[in-house]
């Protein structure tokens, strides 16, 4: 392997890191809010709220992200109505289209994780809290939320890592991020392995950092379990 070329690849791919991180951070944080909303709709017991949320989850989990992104970027832009709407200043920009697709996608997966976390709260604990006279927001803040958060955290950590990987599709709508830059090096220098190795190393570093941060958060949130061996540091990713 040619070390000088490897260094050159590195310098050319590094400028894509901020875009990868920005897309991940923004879509994960907004997506989490949306995911909680969807989970609340699913658990509301109201059919009118439940079904739209179900439909969203079904559609966004059942189709590939690439087709969602293309549909938002190319599909919507073909309509005059869209191009004259108030949303156009956002839909005009590839960044916001990619963000929109990533956010709606992670909201669908995230809502299932959040819902799972909420459903995992033992009835006994809620009943005990009620018996102590807690109700409403206090019950949610003190009992339900902490337990659900601990239950959902490992799954959500995986979801964040999947989102880092999913941002690679943003290169398909002209955004300049890590995979897009690697592909550009491959198509202009016609050399495959160096660009691949650099890009792969960058993703692994980002995902390792995220996995460690999530593990640390899990540790911090579980003081009652600290006697036990610490959470394994490997990337637990399976959905």
């Amino acid at each position: 392997m040619d070390l000088a070329f490897l260094a050159d690849c590195f310098l050319r791919i590094v400028p894509g890191i901020p875009m990868t991180l920005a897309l991940t951070a923004l879509s994960v944080s907004v997506g989490l809010v949306f995911a909680c909303l969807l989970a609340a709709m699913r658990l509301s017991g109201n059919t009118l709220l439940d079904w739209p949320a179900r439909l969203h989850v079904f559609v966004f989990r059942g189709t590939p992200l690439a087709i969602q992104m293309f549909l938002i970027y190319f599909g919507l832009a073909q309509f005059e109505v869209v191009r004259t709407s108030v949303l156009w200043p956002y839909l005009r920009e590839p960044f916001w289209c990619a963000f929109g697709a990533l956010m709606l996608n992670t909201a669908a997966y995230g809502s299932e994780i959040v819902r799972g976390g909420l459903l995992a709260v033992p009835c006994g604990e809620v009943e005990a809290a009620r018996a102590c006279g807690m109700s409403g927001f206090l019950l949610f803040r003190r009992i339900v939320a902490p337990i659900a958060l601990r239950r959902a955290l490992p799954g959500y950590g995986n979801e964040i890592i999947l989102m880092v990987k999913a941002t690679s599709l943003a290169s398909m709508v002209t955004l300049v991020e890590v995979t897009g830059l690697a592909a550009r090096i491959i198509s202009t220098t016609y050399r495959v392995f160096e660009a691949f190795a650099v890009a792969a190393a960058i993703y692994l570093a980002i995902n390792f950092a995220i996995a460690r941060a999530v593990a640390a958060l899990e540790w911090w949130l579980s003081p009652h379990l600290r006697g036990a061996p610490p959470p394994a540091p490997d990337l637990r990713l399976a959905h």
Binding site: I161, K165, A166, T167, S168, L169, S171, T179, A182, A183, I186, V192, F193, F196, A199, A200, Y203, L204, N207, F208, D234, L235, L237
Partner: peptide
């Protein structure tokens, strides 16, 4: 660990071109 940590698109580029 490596494969689950990198985008699928990169794996495809590697296999297809490499």
């Amino acid at each position: 660990t490596v494969i689950r940590g990198i985008p699928e698109l990169l794996v495809i580029y590697l296999v297809f071109f490499g």
